[in-house]
Amino acid sequence: MRQALRLFTIAVGLLLIWQCVVWISGVPKFILPGPVRVAEALIAQFTVIAPHAGITAMEIVLGLLCGTVLGGISAISLILYAPLRQWLMPVLIASQALPVFALAPLLTLWFGYGLMSKVAMAVLIIYFPVTAAFYDGLRRIDPGWLDMARVMAGPNGLPRRSILLCIRLPAALPAFGSGLRVATAVAPIGAVVGEWVGSSAGLGYLMLHANGRMQTDLMFAALLVLAVMALGLYALVDHGLRMVTNWQPENGYA
């Protein structure tokens, strides 16, 4: 409750400063519209913004889902098949070393102007943090647990994957969570960059066109919607992860 109040205070404070800057400097509204103007634009053009926001939200969520599943599978494969590491790791690094902005036109060329190219972009940006964090978590488990599990094996050893399912996976959940949090935070970048490069719908498309027509207030309104969407998604994912890893101690210094 106190945190909500604090957030509210911060938001109101920032808006006030913003409004004051606009008043004092007297910049024209097409350079920097005040918060009141942006709010007006948001309300007036809500029917325009909403469908675009829906498209972008869909791209982000789909990208997040696909990227997470793909990253999860990759991390598990890396841990299960040691030789794969030498082959997949360079690909992983390369996927991250190339700036998505450089790849965006290519992806648009291959996957078209629709949803697919944006989802691909989001996947590309999400894949690495999820895979790297999850793989690290799977790898760095207490060797004492492995000793224990080995001794607990029956005369014929343990069933396939039993250590993975009973020990490695749950132990790696917090690390997976860190990866997924980063992924959630960067997923909107992937989707919007994709829209920026070539699209017919989405908040990125809307912003690009609003910018071109000097509708700066509409651009800010779209930006605001994007920010709220991203924050909401992050809060949702964070809450879900906390529920799943509620056994993990959290100290209050975070």
């Binding site: 004492g144 000793d147 607990m152 069933p159 039993s162 399912l165 009973c166 020990i167 056994w247």
Partner: peptide, 27 residues
């Protein structure tokens, strides 16, 4: 085998920790 550290799995309840051998062998 019993080690110096308890090696309890933090995500399992106490009773499930006692049963971890069975879980590993039979799921």
């Amino acid at each position: 085998y019993m080690a110096q550290r308890d090696l309890l799995l933090p995500w399992l309840s106490i009773i499930d920790n006692v049963l971890i051998g069975h879980r590993l062998r039979h799921y």
